[in-house]
């Protein structure tokens, strides 16, 4: 009987010793990580100045349609009649006819303001984030149309599936308090 209790004591001693060391390991891992921890949460966002409009945002997001949408920085818009983001390069007339539109889902609304200016509004429910208009606007216009991750749609995955395939690494973790990167200041863009 005594022998049994001895072996039990030994087992308990080893158990509590290992438990203590595991607790210490856990504590030191959390302590080390805690030294780097940030209170602010992280979200994913596209840097519009690095985006190359490859079109993967439309196909690789886990949401369908994608959580990436085109947004319009109105401050930059030239309100052109011949909008590079709205019309196909070979459009035969500057009208709202479907065959002239670059957008595959007709998500851009064109509205006459005053001669010769037109306003362009993105219908987010229709936009699939294919970046066709962004490419048109960036190459021929001011670049006021650009892609952003819309955070009431984005599920904020631990690893963003479009960030993984982005060829220009334009999608980065940003602080949740500065969740958007809307083009506003033109000086940020070195090329245009």
């Amino acid at each position: 009987m005594e022998d049994k209790s001895k072996s039990k004591n030994r087992r308990e001693f080893i158990q509590s010793g290992v438990r203590l060391s595991l607790a210490l390991a856990l504590g030191s891992v959390s302590g080390l990580a805690l030294s780097k921890v940030v209170k602010d949460d992280y979200v994913w966002q596209i840097d519009p100045f690095e985006c190359t409009q490859c079109g993967r945002c439309a196909t690789d997001c886990i949401m369908s349609p994608s959580a990436v949408k085109c947004v319009h920085a109105y401050d930059l818009c030239g309100y052109c009649d011949l909008c590079g983001g709205y019309f196909k390069p070979d459009a035969n007339a500057l009208s709202t006819a479907a065959e002239n539109q670059l957008c595959p889902t007709a998500a851009i609304e064109r509205k006459f303001i005053e001669e010769p200016y037109f306003e362009y509004i993105i219908n987010e429910d229709l936009c699939i984030g294919c970046a066709k208009c962004v490419e048109g606007c960036t190459s021929f216009g001011n670049g006021s149309l650009h892609l952003q991750i819309i955070h009431d749609i984005c599920l904020n995955c631990n690893e963003c599936s479009i960030a993984r395939v982005c060829p220009s690494d334009a999608i980065k973790r940003v602080k949740a308090s500065e969740a958007y990167h809307i083009k506003g200041d033109f000086s940020k863009n070195p090329e245009s």
Binding site: Y74, E124, I150, H151, D152, N156, A179
Partner: peptide, 10 residues
């Protein structure tokens, strides 16, 4: 001019 909509994250 309308303002650009930026819905807040969770």
């Amino acid at each position: 001019q309308p303002s650009t909509q930026t819905p807040e994250p969770r």
